[in-house]
């Protein structure tokens, strides 16, 4: 797309001053991008360097970015301090189940909100969006009481039920579905496809970037969620990675070196997920199948 248009431009005006300008623009862009990347990655560098220090040196100022005596042993220590593998397994389980349910139910509902006309659609949708406006802190306690009545406290099911059906997912998917041309759907209807057929055969294949985005957001949210597991999980065998991280923090002193080592390890799945989903954001429109 932009790729193509850039090529067209160069064909039209092949004079050298234009090329020079283009090159200068490119170089400036790269300088800007690299400087920005450095700032964005600072927390990563800080986490890395802290994870290799003695605890007392973590907050020492000025920061020693490259520790003179890197303590790689911190990475070994974290595995002995808490049952990390259990926590990883629990977090993975929750993340996979919640993300899957979230994708399935939100995109399903979003199709109706985006492309179908029915009684009460706009009111219902507004209710969804408005619900995002109420801070969780405000209804945390009523929700907990309800879950306790249902006997779901200290189960993974409670968290799954709480987080799988969010307004956020529906809203995000609706916005992406809206931009898919109606002509495509009408053509399919004329061909005799039911609404369910349209959803599965047309909407889903066309929404890969959107589904990838929701997967990423949902997975990052569940993986990094702290308050939910804190309130709903008691048993050691059910706890998640974020609860495990907090277990390092003591009352009067904090082992920040170990926390950062553990945080970095816990980030690996998220980063891998992001890299794996990259291609859906670069994938050109040609591959998603709209040819007018």
């Amino acid at each position: 797309m932009q790729n193509l248009s850039v090529q067209n431009d160069t064909k039209n005006r092949e004079d050298s001053s234009y090329r020079l300008k283009l090159w200068i623009g490119r170089i400036l862009s790269y300088i800007f991008l690299i400087a920005l990347a450095a700032i964005m990655l600072l927390p990563f560098f800080w986490m890395l360097s802290s994870s290799l220090k003695l605890e007392k040196d973590v907050f020492r100022f000025p920061i020693e970015w490259i520790p003179a005596n890197p303590l790689w042993s911190n990475y070994a220590t974290i595995w002995t301090r808490i049952p990390f593998l259990t926590f990883f397994a629990n977090s993975t389980k929750l993340t996979v189940i919640i993300t899957f349910l979230q994708l399935a139910t939100s995109s399903f509902a979003a199709y109706a909100f985006a492309k179908l006309d029915f009684k009460g659609r706009d009111t219902l949708f507004l209710a969804y969006v408005a619900s995002i406006a109420i801070p969780w802190q405000a209804y945390m306690v009523p929700q907990f009481i309800m879950m306790r009545k249902m006997g779901l406290v200290d189960t993974h099911l409670s968290l799954i039920l709480l987080q799988a059906f969010t307004a956020f997912g529906v809203f995000l998917m609706r916005q992406f579905f809206i931009s898919i041309p109606n002509e495509l759907l009408d053509a399919a209807r004329i061909d005799g496809l039911s609404e369910y057929g349209i959803y599965f055969k047309i909407m889903l294949p066309l929404s890969k970037p959107a589904l990838a985005t929701l997967t990423l957001f949902s997975a990052v949210f569940v993986w990094n969620d702290f308050m939910g597991p804190l309130i709903y999980l008691n048993s050691q065998s059910l706890k998640t990675i974020q609860l495990g991280l907090r277990m390092f923090i003591q009352q009067y002193a904090a082992d920040y070196n170990l926390i950062m080592a553990a945080s970095l390890v816990s980030l690996i799945p998220v980063i891998v997920l992001f890299l794996a989903f990259q291609r859906f954001f670069i994938e050109g429109i040609a591959s998603t199948g709209i040819h007018g």
Partner: peptide
């Protein structure tokens, strides 16, 4: 700087 009393004393 979130500076902890323990760190400055131990240092």
């Amino acid at each position: 700087g979130s500076i902890h009393y323990r760190g400055v004393f131990e240092n």
